[in-house]
Design a binder for these strands. Structure first.
Length: 570
RNA sequence: AACCCCGUGGUGUAAUGGCAGCACAACUGGUUUUGGUCCAGUUAGUCUAGGUUCGAAUCCUGGCGGGGUUGCCA
């Protein structure tokens, strides 16, 4: 490959999707230099970003970076009634956390209102826009339907002078909300309904979170968006598939104006099974208290995934794996989990934690004596070193690691059985103690002093290794176990008269308050991702975790081969 | 019988007229001081009918199926 070719594409990943093809072609024929490629991520600040936005962010920022170009962050704040600065800040934080940095200052569509207004006057002067007095209802009626053409407005033939006068007075606040709109004069019988004289401006006597009461007319998406892109010199305006049918309008608005002309390219949205990614529905979950907030660890929002313990790297890997296409498929959530486990397996330090404690007394171990054992922090990264963990006469193990009547293939503790304590000794269960209700409440075991560190000098093997925590040093913690928020693959699949809330998984959250942690875990700062050995990946809560009162969220469990074996034999 | 877009294993995605490959999932087996990781393997796919071509997942035509579009939302 010649150097010129390598430079001309600048495509490091070698991706060959249709977006890269278009950009590569533009570069090849000299339309742009690679470093001139400019994209934008244009959220409306009316909600929190979710996993679907993460895809758009990775594509918008990622592609610009590949070519050595730039990507803008632009708030598409053209509808004052729905938008708020709260969302602006949250969006900025989420994008940075994902690992991206926008070019220069954050941009706001509202900053372009004056220029958009001037261009609207130009459109009127060109005879391409007119003021319509019809009500919203009349406009809707006259738009026709998918199969019948629309009717032209009685106002369509107004003179340019009259349109100019009316539009100026619209801007100056002479008319009440809804009394007039500015419309593009295109084609009321177009098979593409977007072209049936779409509204460009509506009257809204509402304060805007940035421009205050400066404006009482606000531009509609189709009119505004292409101009925003043009003003910023966007070369490739990447968006999702539902805007595909708007592209003729995007081009139509820009064509007569003396502006740069970006190219809109559409790709399919990301959908995940067992998940909703609709801002409206997400908002309902928050408002109706089905979750604790936008950043509830069960939410598919970026801040929710973050609090759950997802890494930015795993999210980016996931987006990269699902690819860029025009096919509207549903990705299995296990792909996301796999990306996470792959990342965390590499990075997360291992610790021992007992979630549902069962007391074990090592009867032949001296009272009051503590033995500090060496434990490897991360077998995937020997350079992470080792730490010391206390061992003593009284320890906790997980209730699930003991069965009074062990099922087939059960390798853990049972009456008379010997297991290895991770990093510790072999122990053998000698006695089972039950409470008044007949529940197992304590085990009395013996240990083999010769097996310190986990190996028997006589070469005998034990099949099972279980985790444990020494009782006198254990720190009691709260641990939240999360499961999928919805019990149906498609949460919208519900009975007549019901909605997605009927499919909420009642067991999506389990809070355990008597978990026993090895001491090192309690000393960790908030938002630290770790593995509880044999259990799963956990993250100290971003807001509630304290050294004296640890709070961990389960990010994802470890793959559980045993549960499959157990089911098979059941 | 509107218009636009899209159809490749169960799921997501490569192959740009030349050996249908990858990942996830599922299932075997091996390794293992995490029933994790890792390694090896198995199952399984071009919606359909024609056409063009030496050769079609790829190009053309029809059918079928899916998604989007009838806000003064974005």
């Amino acid at each position: 490959m010649s150097e010129q070719q390598a430079v001309s594409t600048g495509n490091e990943s070698g991706a060959s999707d249709f977006i890269h093809e278009i950009i590569n072609a533009d570069i090849r024929r000299g339309k742009y230099l690679p470093q001139q490629i400019r994209t934008r991520f244009p959220p409306e600040p009316n909600g929190y970003l979710h996993i679907g936005h993460a895809k758009a962010i990775c594509i918008d920022f990622g592609i610009a970076a590949e070519y050595g170009g730039r990507c803008n962050l632009r708030m598409d704040d053209t509808n004052p009634g729905k938008e708020d600065v709260e969302y602006v800040h949250a969006i900025e934080e989420d994008i940075k956390w994902l690992g991206y940095q926008w070019d220069g200052q954050i941009k706001f569509a509202s900053d372009y209102f004056p220029q958009m207004y001037e261009y609207a006057l130009t459109m009127i002067k060109l005879g391409l826009a007119y003021v319509d007095d019809q009500s919203a209802e009349e406009i809707r009626q006259n738009r026709g339907t998918l199969t019948v053409p629309g009717q032209e407005s009685p106002c369509r033939q107004r003179s340019i002078a009259e349109n100019l006068d009316l539009f100026t007075r619209m801007k100056d606040g002479h008319f009440p909300d809804g009394s007039k709109v500015l419309r593009a004069k295109i084609d009321m019988s177009s098979p593409n309904i977007n072209l049936r004289d779409p509204v460009m401006y509506r009257i809204l006597h509402q304060p805007h979170h940035r421009t205050g009461s400066q404006w009482c007319i606000y531009p509609m998406y189709d009119w505004a968006h292409g101009l925003e892109d043009a003003i910023e010199g966007i070369t490739h305006s990447l968006c999702t598939l539902e805007f595909e049918i708007h592209r003729p309008l995007y081009d139509w608005f820009l064509q007569p104006l003396p502006v740069h002309r970006p190219q809109q390219i559409e790709f399919s949205r990301l959908s995940l099974n067992y998940t909703i990614t609709s801002k409206r529905k997400l908002l309902r979950l928050v408002q109706e208290g089905h979750v604790s907030g936008w950043d509830d660890p069960r939410m598919p929002t970026i801040c929710g995934l973050r609090r759950r313990g997802y890494t930015p790297e795993s999210l980016r890997a996931f987006v990269s794996q699902t690819g860029i296409t025009k096919f509207t498929g549903i990705t299995d959530a296990s792909v996301l989990e796999n990306c996470l486990r792959e990342d965390l397996n590499r990075r997360a330090s291992r610790y021992m934690a007992v979630l549902r404690p069962l007391k074990v007394c090592i009867t032949n171990y001296p009272e009051g004596q503590i033995d500090w054992l060496d434990a490897v922090n991360n077998p995937e990264r020997p350079e992470d070193g080792t730490r010391q963990i206390p061992f003593g006469r009284n320890i906790y193990i997980d209730q699930d690691d003991f069965r009074e009547v062990p099922p087939p293939k059960y390798f853990r503790l049972a009456p008379g059985a010997e297991v290895r304590l991770r990093w510790g000794y072999f122990i053998t269960c000698q006695e089972v103690i039950k409470d008044a209700n007949g529940q197992v409440c304590e085990l009395r075991c013996t240990y083999d002093p010769d097996t310190r560190g986990g190996n028997a000098p006589d070469g005998r093997k034990v099949k099972g290794t279980i985790h444990w925590v020494e009782a006198s040093h254990a720190v009691t913690a709260s641990v939240r176990l999360y499961d999928r928020l919805f019990s149906k693959e498609n949460p919208d699949d519900c009975e007549e008269g019901q909605d997605f809330c009927a499919n909420l998984n009642p067991n999506s959250l389990t809070v355990l308050t008597d978990c026993k942690l090895e001491p090192a875990l309690a000393a960790l700062p908030p938002e630290t991702r770790v593995q509880f050995e044999r259990v799963g990946y956990f993250c100290s809560d971003r807001y509630e975790h304290q050294p004296g009162l640890p709070v961990f969220n389960r990010t994802v469990s470890l793959k559980d081969t045993w549960s499959k074996i157990e089911k098979k034999h059941a």
